[in-house]
Design a protein around this nucleic acid. Structure first.
Lengths: 406, 406
DNA sequence: CCATTTTGTTCGGGATAGAAACAAAGCTGG
DNA sequence: CCAGCTTTGTTTCTATCCCGAACAAAATGG
């Protein structure tokens, strides 16, 4: 029951019906490959004739290919169709405060190459230059020059996705910047950009493996800050000004430390990485000077988790506290958005065995319905490169997305 | 960029293009009426011939009618088209703990009759019986027997909208109940049901007047509890189990009163009606016994607001406190969902001049971006019958909604 | 009254779904 | 090894709908 936006709609043309069915068929191949034309016709309750036409179109465009014929107990053997993924490439870029990572992968998200370099300080133009050179080298060495479908870039900040423009990325010291246009011109490839937590959510919508799928879920990423990517009705919730997802600044501990946003006791100031480390080291998180000292100390979450693993009781306590606060945050999402699943990304996933029972308890205590209290939670370890997967999803998603109509 | 749900999609048929364009045209007529065929063709960049066919179809179905011809400086005068609203009727029902209200309105939401009666205690079957008799009388007296398009029912509880089933409504003492089917059989009319705050949000999507429209907004209703209806990407966010919108139980005052959910210092326990009244009367909100005493005392929010108007400083202070807490709650929504507008329904809207500056200050202090801090907020006084408008929207919306495709 | 302009209708052509006939390719049982 | 059966995939024809152009209708102004 979506309302039609009369200032921004797409009406149907002669070719719309074909376009719609083409996308459905393509998505069916993606999710059920290998699959035969006859099977597609049955699943779509469409005539086999029409399926043949659709398939011929997709074969000609190189979206799918014919594989082997399957065994059948009776009758002619079906020829199986697959999505063409092997010789189609995607570049994913993850820009962060200190380092920028790059991945070259095929269209199914299989990693072919991975590298990273130091992010130039406060200079998006320099970053584009560095990226351009590295992407060119990556594509040449991978023999992927011709068949690269595009570049996805993930940025920690507010992004106007349609315009391809970064609006603000305080962590990087960037103001407004035409990232997609600049990088696109430099490389000659289509560029899509997105805010990091939102892209991470997209990755689970489009590259998600065998995890049960839902049209409603949230991706919570805990790092230097806390960000949330919300997917509702199978669509990303970006909000009116593309700034949705800032659930980290909910006041929850009036006596807690002062957050970088200026308020006291924000969830982020209790569960983000620096907050956890400060708790362990006995630093006063409220003092901004300590933030720099923490950064300079080179002591990180993986270090803290390693200490917990080796039996450090204070490390354990600091992580447990973070788990409890994370549970409070998740309970707010559970009650407010009622997601079918929660993904938790960030270093904390490496200590999941420790924090899960704690945060589960908080959620169970606070959820208003039994079902909401039992919302499945899936940790995503940093080793999976969630942000890079998000970047790739930016390129892959438009190929398979439903056509926007009405 | 919506993902296609391969377990639940609608493919395109021969008639899909027509269906899509029909809905767009209908919505254009609704929003721009009176409007001519030629104007529609221009707005849709569609041939006038096709528009003629579409219009003929809608005329035959009685969705629209031809009005007068407009003046034109040159050329043939256009005949203007209108949505048929006058002789099409809608029944809205608002079920609450103590009273149930009924409205008979035309298709544009103009009120024709309004009545209310005491809600039968813990007995949905009795309610259906009472409703059936009253709806019949209402329709007969209004001469609306033949042209009633349906009944919309708004319930304070969790609702499975598609199945037409109430899942749980603790305020009413209901468990699971087949409300739509039962009432539909009794009246012979189509029945749509929905949770109250969600329906209120829908009303602004579909019956909203001259307020600037957004595809992303929230409707916050403050009454005995706090409920939120979230609209993102032009669609209602219902969540995985239809329980989205419970943003009232965010812990924000650890030393605050115990909430009915069992936690301490929930926003709801600080800003809901009973909390405000308890603050004024000096009752301990944590004590459940006091809730009953407050109910029995017959002292209500309008009474409190009246006392504030007549100069009662303590009444003013109690309301101001509520305004501040409401501001905290809204700031969470502003940061988390980045709505283009916030609607605030409930008795508190009657004291808007008092609370608005307070809650604006809280939001401005907490919003992470300047734009978010300036999110427009529109109060909706209880005199507008927001829940009844929501109930009507349930019937009106499907007529104009975008067809679900892919 | 006729030229001009704009609205609304009609009609032929192209794209697509839909249904049915047909060809292809396998299996089974004599 | 071949006839008969089954299933897959293709071709062919028709109905529906957009699309554009031609045409009719209705108003204005000289």
């Amino acid at each position: 029951m979506r309302k039609i936006d009369t200032r921004n709609f797409r009406r149907a043309t002669r070719s719309t019906a074909r376009e719609v069915n083409r996308q459905i068929l393509l998505e069916l191949v993606r999710e059920h490959q290998p699959i035969s034309r006859a099977d597609l016709a049955r699943r779509m309750s469409l005539g086999r004739g029409t399926v043949t036409e659709l398939v011929n179109g997709l074969l000609a465009e190189g979206e799918i290919y014919e594989g082997a014929t399957a065994m059948a107990p009776r009758g002619r053997r079906p020829t199986l169709l697959h999505i063409r993924t092997r010789d189609r490439f995607v570049v994913g870029v993850d820009v962060r405060f200190s380092r920028t990572s790059l991945i070259l992968a095929d269209f199914a998200g299989r990693q072919l190459a991975l590298e990273s370099f130091e992010t130039p300080l406060n200079a998006p133009e320099l970053l584009v230059e560095a990226l351009q050179a590295r992407i060119r080298r990556l594509l040449e060495s991978g023999g992927a020059m011709e068949n690269c479908q595009g570049i996805g870039v993930v940025v920690p900040g507010v992004v106007d996705r349609k315009a391809g423009r970064v609006l603000a990325a305080p962590q990087l010291g960037w103001g407004e910047f035409e990232l997609a246009a600049t990088l696109g011109e430099a490389t000659g490839l289509p560029v899509a950009i997105e805010n990091a937590p939102m892209a991470c959510a997209l990755a689970h919508l489009w590259l998600g493996g065998d995890v049960i799928k839902t049209e409603n879920f949230v991706y919570v990423t805990v790092a230097d800050g806390v960000g949330v990517g919300v997917v509702a009705n199978g669509q990303l919730v970006r909000g009116h000004g593309s700034t949705a997802g800032e659930f980290g600044h909910i006041p929850s501990e009036p006596s807690g430390p002062v957050c970088r946003c200026g308020s006291r006791g924000c969830l982020e100031a209790c569960e983000a990485h620096l907050a956890t480390l400060a708790r362990y080291l006995g630093y006063d998180f409220s003092d901004r000077e300590n933030h720099r000292r923490l950064h300079d100390s080179q002591f990180t979450m993986p270090d803290l988790i390693a200490r917990f693993r080796s039996g450090d009781a204070r490390a354990r306590a600091a992580l447990e506290e973070t788990g409890r606060y994370l549970g409070i945050g998740l309970s707010i999402l559970v009650n407010g958005l009622n997601p079918g699943r929660i993904f938790v990304g960030g270093e904390i996933a490496a200590a999941w065995d420790l924090v899960e029972p704690l945060l589960r308890r908080e959620i169970a205590a606070r959820a208003l319905t039994r079902a909401a209290g039992a919302t499945p939670i899936t940790p995503e370890p940093a080793t999976e490169h969630p942000r890079l997967r998000g970047a790739m999803a930016l390129v892959v998603a438009p190929v398979f997305a439903a056509p926007q109509l009405a």
